[in-house]
C-alpha cells in the first residue's frame, strides 16, 4: 500500500499547464470572468496578455465569446467558478458552446462543498449532472493535481466542448497522472467491493481500502475522473468481479456519478450500489472538510456503508 502523496493545488496545476499549452500553441486563447487570480488563468494572462481576455462579470457572454473565438479553429479555455460556469451560464454553454460544436474547454474551479466559507450560494453541487447531460460535452473531474495537469493537456488535444471541475482546496496526490479520457483509473485492486470515486473523495476511498486491507478485505478503487465519456466497461467489470459498488462524490446524489453508476449497473449487471454524496440540499458556510462530514461524506459513514455492502455480499458477518 502506498500512502497518499503530498497535497497540491489543482488550480496551480491548471494554471501551469495553460502556460505550457500557450507556449506550444500560438493560437490558444484563454478567457476569465474576473476571477483570474482564483482560477489561476492569470498565469497565462501575464505570459500572453494578447491572448487573454478577462471579460469581467459576464459569465454567460464569456461562453458566447469563447465559442465565437473558437469557430475559426482555435482552442479556447474559459474559466470561472463552477456555480457561474455551469449554473449562471448554463444555456450559453448549451447553445453557444455545445450546440455550435465549439472547441471550448470550460475549466471551472470551486466545485462542490469544499468552497467552504462562501456558503450554499457558491457551493455548486449540481454541475456534474448539468454538464454531463449536454450532448457532445466531455466532463472530467480530476482527483488531484497530476490528473488536472494530464486532463488539461488531453482536452487541448481533443476537438470539441469540455467541462472540467476543480476544487478550491489542495488535494493529496492519489494518481500517477496517467489520466486518459474515457478510462477509469484503478488505484487499488480488489475483489470484495469496489469504490468508484471522483474528485476530493478519491482520497477517502483509498483510506477506506487501506483500512479494510488490514482486515483482509480487498477493495478495488476506481478514480472515475472521466465522467463523460464514462468507462462503463470498468464499472461493469467491477460489478461482475466484486459484486457491489460504493460511489463517493462531492456532488448531489440525485444527478451525479452515483446516479450514473446505478444506471450503468442496472442495465448491464445489476449489483447493490450505494451512493454517498450531497443529499438533496444546498450547502452552508463552514470549514471545508467539516462540511463533507456534516453532509454525509464522513469516513465513518463511508465505512458504515462499505460494511453494509460487504455484509450483503456475505464477505463479513
Amino acid at each position: 500500500m502506498t500512502a497518499l502523496g503530498p497535497a497540491a493545488s489543482l488550480r496551480d496545476a491548471y494554471g501551469a499547464a495553460l502556460v505550457e499549452l500557450g507556449e506550444r500553441d500560438p493560437g490558444l486563447v484563454v478567457l476569465d470572468a474576473d476571477l483570474s487570480g482564483s482560477t489561476r488563468t492569470q498565469l497565462f494572462g501575464q505570459r500572453f496578455p494578447d491572448r487573454f481576455f478577462n471579460v469581467g462579470v459576464m459569465e454567460p457572454t464569456m461562453m458566447s465569446i469563447a465559442a465565437g473565438l473558437s469557430l475559426g479553429g482555435r482552442t479556447v479555455f474559459a474559466s470561472t467558478f463552477a456555480v457561474f460556469a455551469a449554473g449562471q451560464a448554463y444555456n450559453f454553454v448549451r447553445q453557444s458552446v455545445c450546440y455550435n460544436r465549439a472547441n471550448v474547454k470550460i475549466v471551472a474551479t470551486h466545485g462542490g462543498l469544499l468552497v467552504g466559507g462562501d456558503g450554499g450560494t457558491h457551493q455548486m453541487v449540481e454541475d456534474i449532472g448539468l454538464m454531463r447531460g449536454l450532448p457532445g460535452m466531455t466532463v472530467v473531474v480530476p482527483s488531484d493535481a497530476a490528473t488536472t495537469r494530464a486532463a488539461t493537456f488531453a482536452l487541448a488535444e481533443r476537438n470539441g466542448p469540455a467541462y472540467v471541475r476543480l476544487t478550491r482546496e489542495s488535494l493529496p496526490t492519489v494518481t500517477d497522472g496517467s489520466f486518459r479520457i474515457g478510462r477509469a483509473a484503478e488505484l487499488r485492486s480488489g475483489n470484495d467491493l469496489t469504490v468508484v470515486a471522483v474528485g476530493a473523495l478519491v482520497a477517502r476511498g483509498l483510506e477506506l481500502a487501506d483500512d479494510l486491507a488490514r482486515l483482509g478485505i480487498s477493495v478495488r478503487v476506481l478514480d472515475a475522473a472521466s465522467v463523460k465519456p464514462f468507462d462503463e466497461a470498468a464499472i461493469l467489470k467491477a460489478a461482475r468481479e466484486t459484486g457491489a459498488i460504493l460511489v463517493l462524490e462531492e456532488h448531489s446524489v440525485l444527478t451525479g456519478v452515483g446516479a450514473l453508476v446505478a444506471a450503468v449497473t442496472a442495465e448491464g449487471h445489476p449489483v447493490p450500489v450505494r451512493r454517498i454524496g450531497v443529499p438533496d440540499l444546498f450547502g452552508e458556510s463552514g470549514d471545508p472538510w467539516a462540511l463533507l462530514d456534516r453532509f454525509g461524506m464522513s469516513m465513518q459513514r463511508i465505512r458504515d456503508e462499505a460494511w453494509d455492502l460487504l455484509r450483503l455480499r456475505g464477505r463479513v458477518e
Partner: peptide, 8 residues
C-alpha cells in the same frame, strides 16, 4: 456574443 468572439 459569438460575433464579438469572431471579431476578436
Amino acid at each position: 456574443g459569438m460575433a464579438v468572439g469572431m471579431a476578436l
